[in-house]
Simulated scan of single mutants.
Amino acid sequence: MRILILGGTKFLGRIVAEEALRRDHNVVTFNRGTSGGDVRGVAPIRGDRTSDRDLATLVAQGDWDVVIDTSGMTTSMVENSTRVLADAVDRYVFVSTVNVYKGWPTDPLDDDSPIRDYTPVGPAGESDADEYGRLKAGCERAVTTVFGERATLLRPSVILGPYEYIGRIPWWLSRIQAGGRVLAPGLPDRSIQPIDVRDVAAFALDVAERNLAGSYNLAAPIGHSTFGAFLGACREVTGADAELVWVDDAFLRDHGVPEWVGLPLWRDYQGTWHVDAARARAEGLRCRPLEETVADTYAWLRGGAVVSSERSAELGISRERETEILTAWDARDEADG
């Protein structure tokens, strides 16, 4: 197959390119060349997808069997690319997100859960997550409007693994490797279901090769792992002598720890880790153990990788703040005793 990847130099786009080459496909990537080096073996085309001129240059290099869009973030951006590529590719695979669901992250979700309404301007007080989901819903609408049955929508949950630029696993690995008493959020047996970036990439190529239409949630099976197993894997691969101190959710909120970013991946809404991906599993989605994802991410970091992005800078709490919370937790336990 001749595959066009919109993106292709960082995280998911990069892994898609590597996997496509491993499967002996002809791979073209389209990006600005500012977010990382090209995967060896691809044919890179430089350009900005918001530029009509650059998109016209891209289309002149066509045709393709499929485009896999890993970088479409705004509705206008995806409207432009679908319009220009409508006659140049046979299938459009768009990587969306579970954030498009109205119930995310509070409610359990399945493949048929209601989707957010898209509006060019969001309501006052809209959260960043709501805006992200609303805009991605608009992206999905742009793809399906132009491509119809030639559209495939992938809605992954939290994606982790090597090349992760947000830095969720890297933050925990760094903190646990430092040792000592580590603030662990909630309960160790809380079910979590992040999906490995390589499993998302493999499924994206599977649907492309099989010409599958429709929408698919992508998440590890419900109950796939637990937060305790995740942090235990971090401790095992680092060889650290860290002591995990589990502090309940209400206490963390009362002490101002922001969910999801203060302690990465911590959120106690019922729906966060209850995403049913039955449709994708029926089509062959396979999810590797979370312990393997942790170990491979650690190996990637030990190879000299540096996690640096605006979002990674927002992750985590300071050691001083962690100590303050643990001290307050100890004092509460002593008072209760």
Rank of each mutant, 00 (worst) to 15 (best):
P221V: 12
R134P: 02
L135D: 11
G167I: 10
L154A: 06
V121R: 14
F203Y: 07
A220N: 04
I159D: 04
D130K: 04
G125S: 11
I192W: 09
C139H: 06
L154R: 01
L173A: 11
E131F: 12
E209R: 13
T119R: 15
A184G: 08
A202T: 15
A213Y: 01
G180K: 10
E209F: 02
R141A: 15
D110T: 04
V121G: 00
A219P: 04
I192N: 08
D117P: 00
R155F: 04
K136N: 07
I222H: 05
E140I: 05
D112V: 07
T145D: 15
I166G: 01
D189N: 14
L153V: 15
G161N: 06
T145V: 01
L173G: 07
A219Q: 08
Q177L: 09
S191A: 15
W171E: 06
G148T: 11
I176N: 03
A201I: 09
Y163L: 04
S127D: 07
G167Y: 06
D107P: 00
E149P: 03
L109K: 08
P156L: 06
L183H: 05
T152N: 01
P170T: 11
R134F: 02
I192S: 12
E149Y: 00
A220W: 03
R141W: 02
A129H: 01
G167D: 09
D130R: 13
L160P: 02
G167R: 09
L135M: 14
T145N: 14
P120D: 05
L173C: 12
V143I: 12
G148N: 11
R198H: 06
E140V: 10
C139F: 04
P108Q: 11
I169R: 00
I176C: 02
W172I: 11
I169K: 05
Q193C: 13
Y132M: 09
A184S: 13
D112Y: 03
A124L: 12
I192M: 15
A202L: 02
